[in-house]
Computed example of a mutant assay.
Amino acid sequence: MNTSAVAKLLNVSHSTIQRWVTQLNMEVERNQLGHYQFTDDDIDLLRKIQDQLNEGVVLQKVTISEKKIRKANVKHHTEPEKGQDHLIERISRLEKSLKTKADDVVSYQLLQHRSELEDMQKLVDKLEARIEALESANVPPAEFYLASEEAAAAKKTKKKPFMKNFFGNTKKNGHSSLSTVDSD
């Protein structure tokens, strides 16, 4: 049972149950969320506490002979057990393989970066040669215009509206040139 259900059963508040458990150092199981889970023995123990409190005993002086006291479960190991040696050895092998794999990944990445840098360097060399050729006086005009056309194509051009391509700019002084026909 959870704390709320026990509190309803004993007709006390939720916080009262929690206070009794903590102040009397009762050992109560907890679920995966950390909430108390009371067994029938725990509920019987809480009823005995409630009876003593109803008789006028102060909570600090409540005594229950069969009360469960919280204990720390600490195990001291002086020697590793049989299974632990195997686990320690396996962990060591896994750590070594992980380190090796990490080194392999870094090496692969470095090779990839080196390849990319070499490709970029080839491109830079090619561009430098082209720029030198364009800047030299021996460049035939056709090649110069071809290079400038490529540069212009790379830039975005502003598109004219569809109708302006056919009729051009038809508005003059705020009036359309098509509507200036005199009617006599």
Rank of each mutant, 00 (worst) to 15 (best):
Met1Trp: 06
Met1Arg: 07
Asn2Met: 03
Leu9Pro: 00
Leu9His: 11
Leu10Cys: 09
Asn11Arg: 15
Val12Thr: 04
Ser13Leu: 00
Ile17Lys: 01
Leu24Gly: 02
Leu24Arg: 02
Glu29Asp: 05
Gln32Ala: 10
Leu33Pro: 00
His35Ser: 06
Tyr36Leu: 03
Phe38Gln: 05
Ile43Trp: 03
Asp44His: 14
Lys48Ala: 14
Lys48Ser: 14
Ile49Pro: 00
Asp51Ala: 11
Asp51Ser: 10
Gln52Met: 04
Leu53Ile: 12
Glu55Ile: 00
Glu55Ser: 14
Gln60Trp: 04
Gln60Met: 12
Lys61His: 12
Ser65Val: 12
Ile69Ser: 09
Arg70Cys: 03
Asn73Glu: 15
Asn73Lys: 15
His77Val: 07
Glu81Val: 13
Gln84Asp: 13
His86Lys: 12
Ile91Trp: 02
Ser92Asn: 08
Glu95Cys: 03
Lys96Thr: 11
Lys96Ile: 10
Ser97Trp: 01
Thr100Gln: 10
Lys101Cys: 04
Asp103Val: 04
Val106Gly: 00
Tyr108Val: 06
Leu110Thr: 08
Leu111Ala: 09
Glu116Asn: 03
Glu116Lys: 09
Glu118Asn: 10
Lys122Cys: 05
Lys122Gln: 05
Leu127Met: 07
Glu128Trp: 05
Glu128Ile: 14
Glu128Lys: 12
Glu135Phe: 05
Pro140Gly: 15
Glu143Ile: 06
Leu146Ile: 03
Ala147Tyr: 11
Glu150Phe: 02
Glu150Arg: 05
Ala152Arg: 08
Ala154His: 10
Ala154Trp: 09
Lys155Ile: 07
Lys155Leu: 14
Lys156Gly: 04
Thr157Phe: 10
Lys158Asp: 02
Lys160Gly: 05
Pro161Glu: 11
Phe162Met: 08
Phe162Asn: 11
Met163Asp: 07
Lys164Leu: 09
Asn165Val: 07
Gly168Asp: 01
Thr170His: 00
Asn173Met: 01
Thr180Ile: 13
Thr180Lys: 15
